[in-house]
Nucleic acid binder design. Sequence first.
DNA 1: CTAATTTTTGAACATGCAGTCAGAAAAAAT
DNA 2: ATTTTTTCTGACTGCATGTTCAAAAATTAG
Lengths: 219, 219
Amino acid sequence: MQSEKILIDQGKRSFIETARRAQIVECAIETIADLGFAQASLAQIAKRAKVSTGVILYYFNGKDDLIREVVAHVFATGEAFMRPRVDVNQDSARKALLSFIAASVDFIASNPTNVRAVMNIMRAGRTENGALRFDPAVEEPRRAGFRNILQWGHRTGEFRAFDVRVMVVTIIEALDVIPSLLAAEPDIDLAAYKRNLVELFDRATRNDGVDPTLSWESS
Amino acid sequence: MQSEKILIDQGKRSFIETARRAQIVECAIETIADLGFAQASLAQIAKRAKVSTGVILYYFNGKDDLIREVVAHVFATGEAFMRPRVDVNQDSARKALLSFIAASVDFIASNPTNVRAVMNIMRAGRTENGALRFDPAVEEPRRAGFRNILQWGHRTGEFRAFDVRVMVVTIIEALDVIPSLLAAEPDIDLAAYKRNLVELFDRATRNDGVDPTLSWESS
DNA sequence: CTAATTTTTGAACATGCAGTCAGAAAAAAT
DNA sequence: ATTTTTTCTGACTGCATGTTCAAAAATTAG
């Protein structure tokens, strides 16, 4: 591994280094998904990779560095998965929203372990001072994706009036809970789940001209 | 504290014991909400309570016992808060659902620290073997509450056809994320948030006779 | 006031952690 | 074949954790 040399031959990783880094990241993901972030020590990850713990710290500058790499890797995978499926549906906000939701479920369905590991990291990771350890900013592009679609639909009148933030948060939470459901019950019919979520948020967002002020609160 | 004597004078706690237990539970909640579950060591909790760590283990049979008590306490508080507000709205499933959601937001608004602590515990807590530490069964009454209302609405035809489980999970996640939003941004207008969630799930559930099979997927 | 009991302390203990390091082993370069 | 570099090991450090425990302090009972 290079430490000072990074200025000279940056990016030039040996075959072994590339392979080991990938292997360690993969084992970290599995370990976190299996045991939870709190129990995923370097020793556990090293055991799964069948190396000594020193190897991990030879390739990564500490545990935090490894975890950041895990998060970055999964988010990169996610963006690569989503981009083509989102780009083709840009002729209406409704279509864009619903295909974004559907593609998200598809991504989770095809990468459950990765997503579960990242969920664990995001929800458990704090530093000693209590601040969130792993930058919520990594999630921002995803949030922005939904936010832009919802604002677009407001401009075109496809969507009813609602607080964009509340809707974004609700959609994202509805998606992000799926990995943990899947872990508890692996046989969930995700195609049906996807259809349900799509229809749920279609109805929640669309502007169908129904009087919005039906009072439901009793006296 | 009694250990074997529990069979004899069960429930008869001294004044000091009752007060200390309550104080320690309260400090545990604050510590977990502030620092996160992972950083909430007995030492931290003891420091906040201004006692030595030994005191905690004198009144509780270990850390897990304390955490269980925290969870039980918050859930009991929650049930006490919810019961009167739910019981009065039992003449229609729609009313019951929407008032349940509204009351849930109200509870979070009036107990943000408690709820945040429990969320931290539920999401972070695993034992050494990787199993969930704190029984998801504590959550079951709440889930059952929503489930029963949704099934009731299906029977009466107030609600459209949807998978009850998906809807329950989505509603609960929409509610449970609020404490963490609140922690990041304490000035959120929860009344507006509540109105948004109520309308969102009203539209998501109600049976308005609109053709449900509007195709949104392009060829 | 004295004795018994409850409560609290603070030191000790075992365990597990992230991270360090000297040197062995393997691979690459000469 | 020999040197140089990369890769890997396993013992070690220092620290934080949950828990135990003997004894001190405070409270209660007789």
